[in-house]
């Protein structure tokens, strides 16, 4: 009799559990509950939770709003593409466009201040990957995702794309500056 033959005992469900199995099921079940309740727990007591705030948008609407912020708060431009570096006031709304194959504009934030970062894509899916923090957020076209972020350490960070978006995907990278107030 084995696992490749019908159970020898017609009413096999009456066979009592072995102690090994019973004990393990209880332990595993308790652990599964810990795994489950850690997530709501972190929503209440943890500081790193992805925002649920998102709206439908269009590439036109989103680039218009981004352009307004860029016009107001650009402090300098960088690289030969003259990408604007935006230094918005602490606590304000910051916009970041993902498009083939660029993040636009570049951001300069202040340490310890909280910002509402708006993310949307103009075309395909992109992956917002902040390095070396290693915070990774998916960016969809047609959705405006608003994430509240608080940079904790000054420095130069990279934003790379980690959702495959076509032949030049690997060239899609940008900088994010965090400065001391």
């Amino acid at each position: 009799m084995s696992a490749i033959q019908p159970p020898p005992d017609r009413i096999w469900w009456k066979q009592p559990l072995d102690r090994v199995e019973g004990t393990w099921i209880v332990i595993a079940f308790v652990w599964c509950m810990v795994l489950f309740f850690m997530m709501p727990y972190w929503h209440i007591y943890g500081k790193q939770n992805l925002s649920n705030e998102a709206y439908r948008t269009t590439p036109e609407m989103f680039s218009k709003k981004t352009q307004e912020v860029v016009d107001k708060y650009t402090v300098r431009t960088e690289t030969e593409l003259k990408i604007p570096v935006v230094h918005p006031p602490a606590g304000s709304d910051v916009y970041l466009i993902a498009r083939l194959w660029q993040w636009w504009p570049m951001l300069e934030l202040e340490e310890g201040k909280t910002y509402r970062l708006h993310l949307s894509s103009m075309d395909y899916l992109h992956g917002f990957s902040l390095q070396p923090e290693n915070i990774n957020i998916e960016v969809h076209p047609g959705y405006e995702h608003i994430v509240t972020v608080t940079p904790t350490k000054p420095g130069t960070y990279s934003i790379i794309c980690n959702e495959y978006c076509g032949i030049n995907h690997h060239t899609m990278a940008s900088k994010l500056y965090v400065v001391k107030k």
């Binding site: 795994l35 972190w42 943890g46 790193q48 939770n49 992956g127 915070i135 990774n136 957020i137 959702e163």
Partner: peptide
């Protein structure tokens, strides 16, 4: 597959 831990792993 843990909601929050995914933030530091997603698409890496």
């Amino acid at each position: 597959g843990t909601e929050q831990l995914n933030l530091i792993i997603h698409n890496t």
